[in-house]
Amino acid sequence: MHNTKKNRLIDKSFQFWGIGNTFIGIVLLAIFIGYIVYLGASRLSFDFLSSLPSRFPDKSGIYTAMVGSVWIMFLTAIFAIPIGVSAAIYLEEYQKKNRFANILEINISNLAGVPSIIYGLLGLQVFSRTIGLGGNLLAGALTLSLLILPIIIVATREALKAVPNLIKDASYALGATKWQTIRHQILPAASGGIMTGIILSISRAVGEAAPLIVVGALAYVPFVPTSPMDDFSVLPIQIFNWISRPQAGFIVNAAAGIIVLLVITFSMNLVAILIRNKFEKKMN
């Protein structure tokens, strides 16, 4: 009797402990976002979005950095999506389960955990120096593609795994080949999950500064890149640069830049969620 009471108490207290821990993360995030918005919201204006970098905090804007980030986003997507998705299809649908497959799998999961600056050094040596691209958009986008490839592969494989065998079996039963089955049954069924993975990984790429600084992205770019061979800057680098300046006005600029970056990544995540919901409904 006594023991039951004690166990219930433990049960209850663990529940509260769990609630408390759940809220730590949310509360900290809320404080952070609240403070950033409080600091930077007043600085947000059309001028801020459309001005070049300047030594005067109140004249300085994020135009070139924002356009650079958009370029990087699209180029990275163009390189990383086809390679990542095809690799995942191969590993999930074609590769036989053996030791080699295991090694591949472990390595790809490990790659997802490699610090981003290491990818920057790799990109500097391979794309900037050996291939001779220098520090342009192409070199930056290729480096970030390497960075997010493992994430796309892992997410895509999860999505493919989640497709019920019933669908595959039905397709084969009707005489479809393996590729027909993948193309017409598995990929459409998994596309919600695949899209979610892709969008989340690209929103991560948009937030990276360290690997791009190593590859040669710049801090001051007073013109908008017009081709993939142009030099560039991105939002995280601009923010990083402003934070370390002595004048208080630059800190406000950094906060405003963070708001813009957050809006971009949050809206990408929102799109990812909407897509997933839409496809889940379709499946059911």
Binding site: S54, I213, L218, Y220, P222
Partner: peptide, 28 residues
């Protein structure tokens, strides 16, 4: 990165005089 703010300021002013010269500055 210590020299950067000064070079940035000079580049900004220079741009007012010579808008067709594209100056880029990195902070390696």
């Amino acid at each position: 990165s210590t020299v950067y703010p000064l070079t940035e300021a000079v580049a900004e002013e220079f741009r007012a005089e010579q808008p067709k010269v594209d100056i880029t500055i990195g902070v390696s």
